[in-house]
């Protein structure tokens, strides 16, 4: 089975093509604010390197967020259009699920800076979800971790909060593909980003305040 993987949820583009669990080509690049400019060009290079046409792919795995709102939409737009127009199977995973693919016996805490002291984070242990992905204050996450009384590691991009036990995220794209390629296909029409947070305008209208 040939799988195409794409994650544009941070300032890094992570993408790859595998064939029967062999990685044919991959890219890990910090595109910063040029994500919209270079993503599809990089994808074109990936296919060239793998000597494949886009139509050769059997399955698409797209990272749906949370993370950079604009970033997520870049990969998601491409993946949706590819799946719908070429009639390919598509599955989505969260960025935190992708980050939790790590060889360790410790509790894994993938986290993404969500500004103003908030993070997008989840707590994972041996493939089990201990705390589901959510938008919460870093303090609150730390309280939860303290109450667990277990050894844990944070994983993320750039340790902005200067946390101890922090691992810089450097995805093993093949391992992520192998872990999630068996997921059941979703409808490309209705697949959409997972922002984990409403827009400010919606929060104000609905009177939602995040204080946790």
């Amino acid at each position: 089975m040939k799988v195409f993987y794409i994650d544009t949820s941070s300032s890094y583009l992570y993408a790859g093509i595998s064939d029967n669990d062999i990685l044919l080509s991959s890219v890990k690049k910090n595109l910063g604010s040029d994500m919209s400019k270079f993503t599809i060009k990089e994808v074109e290079n990936l296919f060239k390197e793998a000597s494949l046409e886009s139509s050769d792919i059997d399955k698409i795995i797209v990272v749906k967020g949370p993370g950079s709102y604009t970033g997520i939409r870049i990969g998601m737009t491409f993946a949706k259009i590819m799946a719908w127009s070429l009639k390919k199977e598509i599955v989505s995973i969260t960025s935190l699920e992708a980050m939790s693919v790590l060889e360790t016996s410790k509790v894994i805490v993938p986290l993404i800076d969500a500004r103003r002291g908030f993070v997008f984070a989840g707590i994972y242990e041996n493939n089990n979800v201990i705390m589901k992905n959510q938008y919460l204050k870093l303090d609150r996450l730390q309280e939860q971790l303290a109450s667990l009384k277990k050894e844990f590691v944070y994983i993320g991009n750039q340790n902005k909060f200067k946390l101890e036990n922090f691992i810089e995220y450097d995805p093993d794209i093949l391992k992520i593909i192998i872990k999630y390629e068996g997921l059941k296909g979703e409808n490309p029409h209705t697949i959409e980003p997972e922002y984990l947070k409403l827009t400010e305008a919606e929060e104000n209208l609905k009177g939602i305040h995040y204080d946790n």
């Binding site: 993503t39 599809i40 870049i74 737009t77 259009i81």
Partner: peptide, 16 residues
């Protein structure tokens, strides 16, 4: 943000 969705869609179709 709105433009980007259309542009990425167009680029995806042009590539595919």
């Amino acid at each position: 943000g709105s433009l980007l969705v259309g542009v990425e869609c167009a680029k995806a179709l042009a590539f595919l």
